[in-house]
Design a protein around this nucleic acid. Structure first.
Lengths: 207, 207
DNA sequence: AATTGTGAACCTCTTCACAGCT
DNA sequence: AGCTGTGAAGAGGTTCACAATT
């Protein structure tokens, strides 16, 4: 399949949320123009993004909200639930365990890992904290497909490498460091300081 | 000044981290090639990014790590500390209060807000939780320049609007919704579900 | 000899604009 | 009449490749 850009994929996610909200409000049909306006983009962008995957609208009418939501859900692979491991049970990690939004979209944190002996063996929300050494055993048992990396920067590459040996191919990385992975593995970064620094840059330029 | 792309700015942040690490290791001089390799990009990209702001290297030699770090720090506006407000003291919000990385880069959370009467008046880490109604008073008192939005999606636009009336022009938004702002206001999004959904897409395509 | 700084070429993403369908 | 789907044009970002400098 033709390579679709990251921006298109992340916009599909926002359309998905938009559609959910519209459906909650009882809206049955929506135009690309309305979706665009809600998300501060152009309607051509919305139509182009969708066109990579098919022709889901009706000319003159727009899109059926329920049907389009289903299509996007299928495209993004949200028809199933995903078993997610969380490595690093610090501040950020603990907050993510309770993060409703993940669960709602079908991402279920089913395994916790840490390197700190004081934490290993304890439970959080009914989930036992495992030592990172046992990553392969647990990953197999729990059928983990995605790992969230919330460990300190200096350990992040190591931890990812271990998960990769166990066959995990998708990572959400919170450590402020570039993780190196082979081409068949995907890393998405969630680097909150980078965004704050962009704001700092903006305010500095526009004093 | 010529408009610099968001990607250039966020790469500057990663160069900044890279330089800090190199300096810690006692490295005095670095080439664009080394910086590139550490961050999995091309050396031309590194040089081009820096060239928008000046000529900081020496041909044949590379860049002085300490000097380049100072330059980037100045460009990004990290020479000062920034007073940051946090709206929404839920899971995510609480984790951010303790997030060392922010403080280290000079982003100091100095005011907390929530709408929940049960939380208002309480303290976390010595910071009193204020009602969102008092946002202008506190924002002025504490000289807030950036606000982190960690409230539920349905309240996010409202809360941002209130901050804008008080003169705040930079937002880090964790709510999974597109915030509308006038052109002189900047919003950066930290939407963790979007990244997970991109991983879900990737795994679904590459089964 | 090594490495920067940069115009030009290239590539990718976005927007335009309109034919085609409902 | 209204709105989609899309080829073509346009804008923007990345990489090339090499002259300039240490």
């Amino acid at each position: 399949m033709k390579k679709i850009s990251d921006s298109t994929i992340s916009r599909l996610s926002t359309y998905y949320r938009t559609l959910n909200r519209l459906i909650d409000q009882g809206v049955k049909t929506v135009s690309s123009d309305t979706i665009a306006e809600i998300n501060d983009i152009t309607s051509a962008q919305v139509r182009k993004d969708l066109s990579f995957f098919g022709a889901f609208g009706k000319r003159g009418l727009g899109y059926n909200t329920e049907a389009l939501k289903e299509e996007i859900s299928r495209i993004l692979g949200l028809k199933k639930t995903w078993n997610v491991a969380l490595a690093g049970v610090g501040n950020i990690g603990k907050a993510l365990i309770d993060y409703e939004e993940f669960r709602k979209q079908g991402f279920i944190i089913t395994a916790l890992f840490d390197r700190d002996e004081k934490k290993v063996g304890k439970e959080i929300k009914g989930l036992k904290i495992h030592h990172i050494e046992n990553v392969c055993q647990i990953t197999r048992e729990k059928n983990i497909e995605i790992a969230i990396i919330a460990v300190p920067a200096k350990n992040a590459q190591d931890v990812v490498d271990q998960f990769i040996t166990c066959g995990v191919r998708a990572f959400l990385n919170f450590a402020p460091i570039t993780i190196k992975v082979p081409p068949n593995v995907q890393v998405k970064n969630e680097n909150m300081s980078i965004e704050l620094e962009a704001l700092s840059y903006y305010l500095t330029q526009n004093k």
